[in-house]
Design a protein around this nucleic acid. Sequence first.
RNA 1: GGACUCAUAGCUCAGCUGGUUAGAGCGCUACGUUGACAUCGUAGAGGUCGGCGGUUCGACUCCGUCUGAGUCCA
Length: 877
Amino acid sequence: MPTKYEPKQAEAKWYPFWRDNGYFKAERNKGKTPFTIVIPPPNVTGNLHIGHALNNTLQDIMVRFKRMQGYDALWLPGMDHAGIATQARVEGTLREEGITRHDLGREKFVEKVWEWKERYAGIIREQWTKMGLSLDYSRERFTLDEGLSRAVREVFVRLYEKGLIYRGKYIINWDPVTRTALSDIEVEYKDVQGALYHLRYPLKDGTGYIEVATTRPETMLGDTAVAVHPEDERYKDLVGKTVVLPIVGREIPIVADDYVDREFGSGAVKITPAHDPNDFEIGQRHNLPQILVMDEGGKMNENAAGYQGQDRFECRKNIVRDLQEQGVLFKIEEHMHSVGHSERSGAVVEPYLSTQWFVKMGPLAERAIEAQKSREGVQFVPDRFEKIYLHWIENVRDWCISRQLWWGHRIPAWYCEDCGEMTVSREDIHECPKCASQNLKQDNDVLDTWFSSALWPFSTLGWPDETEDMKHFYPTDVLVTGYDIIYFWVARMIFTALEFTDQKPFEHVLITGLVRDAEGRKMSKSLGNGVDPMEVIEQYGADAMRFMLATGCTPGNDQRFRWERVEAARNFANKIWNASRFALMNMEGFRYEDIDISQNLGIADKWILHRLNETVKDTTRLLDSFEYGEVGRVLYNFVWDELCDWYIEVAKLPLYGDDEAAKKTTRSVLAYVLDQTMRLLHPFMPFISEEIWQHLPHEGDSLIVASWPEAKPELENTEAVKQMELLMGVIRSVRNIRAEVNVPIAKKIELRIKANDEEMLSYLESGKAYIERFCNPEVLSIGTDIAAPEKAMSAVVSGAELYLPLAGLIDIEQEIARLEKELKWLNSEVERVQKKLSNKGFVEKAPAQVIEQERAKEADYLDKQAKVKARIQELKG
RNA sequence: GGACUCAUAGCUCAGCUGGUUAGAGCGCUACGUUGACAUCGUAGAGGUCGGCGGUUCGACUCCGUCUGAGUCCA
């Protein structure tokens, strides 16, 4: 074995081994409890980023853990067609060739996108491989594949038939750059420094003006009314009168509506029903005409008087100038306001009157709320995200699901060119059911990508068919995703699942934070601060990256990516490697059948087995409660601080000695502990653990399907812990003193240890070999009646006192100072504990166990205090 | 405006349902190539857990409030 762990070799070897032996494939074994996760399908737009790496690592940890525990574990992979994003990318490549999608036509263009999809799907699978994900590729799905498309149609038609999908002319969020409608949550609001323009609209009867204010003056071209509050005394007499719209010359009414805020601006507002959601509603109430003044690209249209053809922002400048010249615009104020931007293109979103398809959310939301509140709800981890979800679903508005794109699920609605009938159908139709005309045209729009993602947990398992997979694996157990898509995805999966499967789609939702850059900034293409997970794996190995990501955060919180942390994880892997290497070098010819940890155990053997047992308990408990950061710490400390720093060091004694029985015991313990430790590490670090496990004496073909360790009561041994702690205390004290007076370990010293009592004495006696090994004494005397030498360094540990008569090396004054510092600390501890114990409230109310602990501490501190005090006296005397 | 998160060692962060001598990694100091590992070992320095108030026998942990940083929603 090489002295360093080589990730690349292990990774190249084990992934194909696992995959090709079918270990990733769920059995659909009715005798086993299923454990199901469906992967959040990455977009086929490009490479996976470090956020995917985090998200996927956590899922792989769960699945590997459950698989080892004997569950029928399924982790179902798949990808998302990502409508706008993918179409935009492909259009981008076309642009480089100087053509547009319109040059190609719909069919050809969609073919191009499929080619793109195939290419990126391959890249993504390669990246999953590199990360070591145990995905069941036999069940891989794509949101646009045949089965899922069928599910989408089924859902669409059923909702339509239930009256929960409708088509209508409403104000929606329009992205003039990608020329499509957006849903509410695809709009990002940003505070922008703009202006409030104050206008005076003249009354038709020539008796004066009415003042209105707007942040978008170009929309005045589409004004069809001015509204005031019905109880506003200032305008009481004006309601019902007519104003003449400047520039356009249109005569428009002054109407009264409750919506108007009397406090804002002049208390009168211009109404543009085709370009503002609130104005739209007022317009409906007052039967106002809806006049669109822009086209789909954000340019002014034929209704825009002389501004036709101008871009909306250019028009704004010109119209401001013109209105100023006419004296209509009399004041411009600076004004901070929130402006919607397209989440995809970044364009300023235009509220735009348009015919679109919508999902009526009321009944669906109601059911979701009811389910969540009835304790049958989805468990959010951490639970604070439940509130965020509930707040959204309680205030949700109808969902605009049509998109003016070509890449996606085309809306299954056909219009008869002859009789005008619209037909919604599961199957493609070629004849109008009303007039039998063959002159049909399918709706041009496609569905919002999230419409298909919303069905992901069950559509991937075969729904709407009652497949065996659906019966066995649904509902799923855990969904892992970021807080940024709770509304987009999590919420929508929940209400669609309830509607169509009568069950929640998953038991738990584990919410992760974002992986930010080292400075805490969001990773983004424009900043160029993204970290490529493949780069991390290339440099440090997949296991190091996985360990770092999984243990670097608490659920729901962001984490910063720091290379030092990857390096630390890599060093940990190397530590594991070398500990195993040591064991294996001393295990020549030792077989699995030779392992016997039932007899002849020494203190350290019992101790490490006890500690392993505790680690098994902790790891299992923490994995079950999604506390991966804590698991990481538990395993790191066990391996590094206990197994490597102590057990292996101690094990060298028998291994390099010639007591064959002791040697066999030590080998057994090492083999056993390492075997179990590799199992515990496997979900986090699958490659190195498998590599080592295969070298170790083992039973079975692969660690990936080895059984998960279980705590064994017979390995508990608190006595051994006490003994080991005494010995470690002694050894640490001696090392400390050696460092203090600069006596290297190689130099022999005299060591006298005075045990408090017979019990401590027996502990020390049975650990004498350890003390000799680590303290390198020339003379070692242990007893209950050891006399303190006159000139010596000393230390107290719980249960014993030690002296190092280091002739000639001791500066008495310095030693007194050192002990006095120690005494000072002990005094304060004694004071603290005694204060607590003399507090009546504490003794009366605290649990007995806590009081017991405090009493034990008091005794220990008092003992040490007395000894240190006495020692100082001796030295002074 | 509403909701939430964060504030703990020089830096980045843990600390689960209140009882620990408040931890880790990196960095820092001194020493060290003893037959797993310098991607290492040994020892050490470094924190009044953001401020104030409250609940409690007991608060880093619970509640209120203020300050600062950030996120989501309107």
